[in-house]
Design a binder for these strands. Structure first.
Lengths: 340, 340
DNA sequence: CTGAAAGCGCTTACAG
DNA sequence: CTGAAAGCGCTTACAG
């Protein structure tokens, strides 16, 4: 069952060029000939090999996605949307896990050199300007999700603003002592969310207090895990006096945090980040990111770039949205400042 | 920046054979020559093209994974483990979403014909014996996760037993009127879990009551969604008298179900299925499936098969384990039969 | 240790 | 409408 185009050509009594034309649906082929070829191919279970086609055409019909973190819910939802978009287009999707253990730049560069794909999707990957320049030199379509660079198409969300909105919400509801449950300090989105939190405090003349910013000790997956949220919230709950509210950097962390609250019997209002599907079901108030749309958009622009190599880079920034559910409900008991 | 082996050979003043040897680390090359080639390659940003290598070697160093459902938590955890395993091995991972809208068999067959990969991972895909026979004819390494067939390596979990254990747990704790929150009736795991539920009832002389088996109306992703669990639990909570307990077919559904309980103010003990990471944090009693292990095991055996094509198919069945947390706590008020 | 040459399985002008 | 031939960018015996 491993036939080549030669076997089919022989069996059908035609040349390989004709077989090729039949499968490529380009060039004129007599109907009778076509049927004959197709019949033989079907019987022998033949289809052109992807690798041979890729080499001959200099086009692989394949896109490659780089992700720093597998089995992360954000990534999972992005993946779903990309795959939905790709299925129609007849592109293959390869996923490469960029591990933090080795040099991130080198890993990506290696893949670009090998030319596995026609285009590349960078998810939540951050590089220095000079590194981006190097990627540019490869002269290959690249789309960036969850980061921005002027050399490439990018799709992102205004993290700073989302976090600002969450913090402002609590302030407007009378809270002044607001904790921030953060994640890995080196992560760009984490930094932006911290920045938004700080800016809100500043705008409302509330002093920034470092001791109100906590993170878990478990820093795997940049600290975006249930366990990290659990650990971080434990620290927050030990604070004295207890903060009046908490702005959390991700839904998954918030789920860990909720467990910490349940266990300790103490509860503070919380708004998290992402709006994963699950957030609605556990009653999480959160900052909505249009993850599905982001994946679709990035995939579309990547394919567009593959088909129009000279198109200019386009930046798309989505606006976050505050979604209020149960978890942010303000408990008067905690609101010392308001009672005064 | 698109150099070929010829460019490097020219620039280094050697033949392409030598360049090839340097990159393949096979065959003797004088140290000085090697250094020269490497220097030139580095300067020109050269690395052999994956597709040309694949064709020449008749080996792609790539494995392809077929999944019926993207953005499903089970799949996400499997994916994480496969990727972890693959990274060491220097294999590329391609993911193909098999959509239920078209013929599943045809989609898979098409990919096998194209020979994109050296081996294939079938995740939660079910075929008839004659269809499996056809796949066998392709004479290509295949590993099956979450299903079983004697022609191929397979890794699965005893679904029937897991569901039996959950049901038995409630029975032993005095429940007799036990609901089952099920999913898509055509899904094999769903059927097995229903079977385990029924067998437990039978063994303890409890009549099977169809009206106690409910599912949501939303059947996307085989009904393994929060919304489907939410809908199904609503129906269960309308039952009169209220069931004493509920055996649920997945953690994600259970999270939807918990919302339904909270909203209605009625609560029944529940045990779900999977033991996703999140289950621990929302306090879900559940049947543990060693998802991570399954992915690793399947990947290992696939690679083993790629390297030893004549090895015999091996079947691995993992045993489920009951993990008791809060959600199954038995509320005496509901236990009419026990009070009597 | 190194090179010339055939071959991997296709596509695609170019002729006819 | 169809075929002969070159070419895609590598690897790998085979000689030397």
């Amino acid at each position: 069952m491993a036939n080549t185009i030669y076997d089919i050509a022989n069996a059908a009594g035609v040349s390989i060029a004709t077989v090729s034309r039949v499968f490529n649906k380009k060039g004129r082929v007599k109907n009778e000939t076509r049927r004959k070829v197709l019949a033989v191919a079907d019987e022998l279970g033949y289809h052109p090999q992807a690798f041979a086609q890729g080499l001959a055409r200099k086009k692989k019909n394949s896109i490659m996605m780089f992700v720093p973190i597998m089995s992360n819910h954000f990534f999972m939802e992005v993946l779903g949307s990309i795959q939905d978009k790709l299925t129609d287009q007849n592109f293959e999707l390869s996923i490469v896990h960029i591990t933090p253990d080795e040099d991130v730049f080198t890993q990506v560069e290696y893949q670009l050199k090998r030319q596995w794909a026609d285009g590349y999707l960078f998810v939540s990957l951050h590089f220095s300007p000079s590194q981006w320049e190097v990627f540019k030199k490869f002269d290959v379509p690249i789309s960036v999700i969850d980061d921005y660079n002027h050399l490439f198409d990018s799709v992102s969300v205004d993290n700073e603003k989302g976090s600002f909105m969450a913090t402002e919400y609590f302030i407007k509801n009378g809270c002044r002592r607001i904790a921030h449950l953060s994640a890995h300090p080196d992560s760009i989105p984490v930094q932006e969310r911290l920045k938004g939190y700080k800016r809100a405090l500043l705008e409302y003349n509330i002093g920034f207090d470092t001791s109100l910013v906590k993170r878990g000790d478990n820093m795997s997956r940049d600290g975006f895990t249930e366990s990290s949220g659990y650990q971080g919230m434990k620290k927050i709950l030990e604070l004295d006096p207890l903060p009046e509210a908490c702005v959390c950097s991700s839904d998954i962390k918030a789920i860990g945090a909720m467990k910490a609250m349940r266990e300790s019997g103490r509860h503070i209002p919380m708004i998290s980040y992402d709006n994963l599907t699950i957030a609605e079901y556990v009653g999480l108030s959160t900052v909505h990111q249009p993850i599905y749309k982001m994946g679709v958009k990035a995939t579309e622009s990547l394919i567009h770039k593959i088909e129009n190599p000279s198109s200019k880079p386009k930046k798309t920034v989505y606006q976050p949205k505050l979604v209020i559910r149960d978890s942010s409900e303000i408990n008067e008991i905690n609101l010392d400042s308001k009672i005064v």
